[in-house]
Every structure is written in C-alpha cells, then in structure tokens.
C-alpha cells in the first residue's frame, strides 16, 4: 500500500518552497498514485528557459520502492529517451532510498539535465551525437527545448512562416532555425549574412 500520509506531507512540503526550487508536484487526479512533476530547465544549459513535465506514478511499495518517472515533455538528452521519455538515473533504480522524496528525486533529474552522462546512455543516438559532435548536440537540445518545453514562445511553425514570408526558402529557414536552437533573431541574422 502506498503511504498516502507521507505523499500528502511531501506535496505540502514541496509547495512550501516552490519559489526557491521551482519544482512543482501535483496530483493528476484524485488518485495520489499518479502525479505530475514540473522542473525548470537548469540555467546555463540548452534546456534553460524550458519547463519540463514529468509523469510520476507511485508503486504500491512507495516510499520503499522507487517512484516511476518519465518525461512527458520531449527532451534531447543522452540519458533520456527521445522517444519515450524514459529516464536513466540510478536513484530511480537500485540507488533509491526511502529517505529520498519526490522533490529530491526531481532535483536529481534536474541535475541530470545539467550533467549528462553519455557513457551510460539511455538514448544511443543522442549520446553518440553528444560525444562526436557536441555543437550539434547543443543545437538540437536547444531546438527541442524551444519547440517542446516552451509554452509561451512562438511555435516553430509560426517562426518558419514568419521568416519564410521575409523571402527565405522554407527548407533553409527550417535548417537554420534548428542550427541556432530555435532562436528567431539569431536565425534571421544568419540567414541575412549567409
């Protein structure tokens, strides 16, 4: 049986310092077994500015068994599956300790975003890119953050349309946007200079 008293306390605790940590956990429905966690992309990384949602489901043995976590937001990262959002993180597996909480686990996930471990990859394609062509990796990660993790900014399609209207070929616009990580202004600069 899930220890719901503890989950309840965790939620309260988490909402208390939401300002400081930026980490939010809220139930998906009435059922406390299914939750949604939200973490901000760490500053100074290609994930900066993004808000990432993580599906959390608690096993019956929680907190004695680790919570199951999976990115709901698409993210480009060597230790996170670009397809399914599955996370490769030791504390979510054998290194889990009942003394950890949802908040601390999410903090660890956030830390993983800043410090990828390409030698222990979840997504081999991303990991290879990270190791062989770091610049492209940064570009793609930023582009994915722009595209999938930013609700407020313009969607990619709108940016493409906007730039295409300025008279650049659409295909070129797309590739340039991707190369600069989705930044509209940088893309324009590049398009004009190239």
């Amino acid at each position: 049986m899930i220890d719901f008293a503890r989950v309840q306390k965790e939620l309260q605790e988490c909402s208390r310092d939401i300002e400081a940590s930026g980490i939010r956990v809220s139930p998906k429905s009435d059922n406390l077994g299914c939750l949604i966690g939200t973490i901000p992309g760490p500053i100074g990384t290609p994930y900066e500015g993004g808000t990432f949602q993580i599906d959390i489901s608690l096993p019956d043995g929680y907190p004695f068994e680790p919570p199951k976590m999976q990115f709901a937001t698409k993210v480009w990262h060597p230790n996170i599956s670009s397809q399914s959002g599955a996370i490769c993180l030791d504390i979510l597996k054998d290194q889990w300790s009942p003394a950890l909480t949802l908040k601390t686990a999410l903090l660890s996930v956030q830390a993983l975003l800043s410090a990828p471990e390409p030698d222990d990859p979840q997504d081999a394609v991303v990991a290879q890119q990270y190791l062989r062509d770091y610049q492209t990796f940064i570009g793609t990660a930023r582009y994915w953050t722009e595209t999938f993790a930013k609700a407020s900014s313009l969607g990619v399609e709108e940016k493409v349309q906007k730039l295409a209207e300025m008279g650049f070929p659409e295909a070129l616009v797309r590739s340039t946007l991707e190369a600069v990580g989705g930044d509209e202004n940088l893309a324009l600069e590049k398009l004009c200079s190239g």
């Binding site: 300790s97 003394a99 950890l100 601390t104």
Partner: peptide, 19 residues
Amino acid sequence: HFIVKINEGQSRRIRCMAH
C-alpha cells in the same frame, strides 16, 4: 524496507535506508 528488500531477493545485502 526489510520486507521489500527480502522480496527483491536482496537479503544478503540490505542497506540502511538513508540516502
């Protein structure tokens, strides 16, 4: 904690719960 670990077949090395 102990019961979960025993059921997982970890009886021989049950670690402390602290992180």
